[in-house]
Amino acid sequence: MKIGELATLTDCPVETIRYYEREGLLPAPSRSAGNYRQYDTVHVERLSFIRHCRSLDMTQDEIRALLALRDRPEADCATANRLIDEHLHHVEVRITELLSLREQLRDLRARCRGEGASEACGILRELEQPGPPPVVSEECAHAGHLHVPGVHRRGQ
Rank of each mutant, 00 (worst) to 15 (best):
I3N: 01
I3Q: 03
I3E: 01
G4C: 09
G4K: 03
E5W: 11
A7Y: 02
T8M: 06
L9V: 08
D11T: 05
P13S: 01
P13R: 10
P13V: 07
V14T: 14
T16C: 02
T16G: 04
I17K: 00
Y19E: 00
Y20P: 00
Y20F: 07
G24T: 02
L25H: 01
L26K: 00
P29R: 00
R31I: 12
A33Y: 05
G34M: 08
Q38S: 11
Y39F: 13
D40P: 02
H43F: 06
H43V: 10
V44D: 04
V44H: 00
R46A: 04
R46K: 11
F49W: 09
R51V: 15
R54L: 14
D57F: 03
M58V: 13
T59E: 02
Q60M: 08
R64V: 11
L66G: 05
L67R: 02
L67T: 02
A68N: 07
A68F: 06
L69N: 01
R70N: 09
P73G: 04
P73C: 03
P73W: 11
P73D: 10
E74C: 04
A75Y: 02
D76S: 14
A78T: 14
A78F: 03
A78C: 10
A80C: 09
R82M: 09
L83C: 04
L83G: 03
I84T: 02
E86K: 09
H87W: 12
H87G: 04
H90A: 10
E92P: 01
V93E: 12
V93P: 03
R94S: 12
R94M: 10
I95C: 15
I95H: 15
T96A: 15
E97W: 08
L98G: 11
L98W: 12
R102F: 04
R102T: 14
R102I: 05
R102V: 13
R102G: 01
L108C: 07
R109A: 15
A110W: 06
G114N: 04
A117E: 15
S118I: 14
E119P: 03
E119C: 13
E119Q: 12
A120C: 05
C121A: 12
I123V: 14
L124A: 13
E126D: 08
E128K: 07
E128P: 00
Q129N: 10
Q129V: 07
Q129E: 08
P132M: 07
V135P: 03
V135G: 09
V136G: 06
S137A: 11
H142M: 09
A143L: 11
G144W: 03
H145N: 08
H145M: 09
H147F: 09
V148Q: 00
G150Q: 09
H152C: 09
R153E: 13
R154G: 10
Q156R: 11
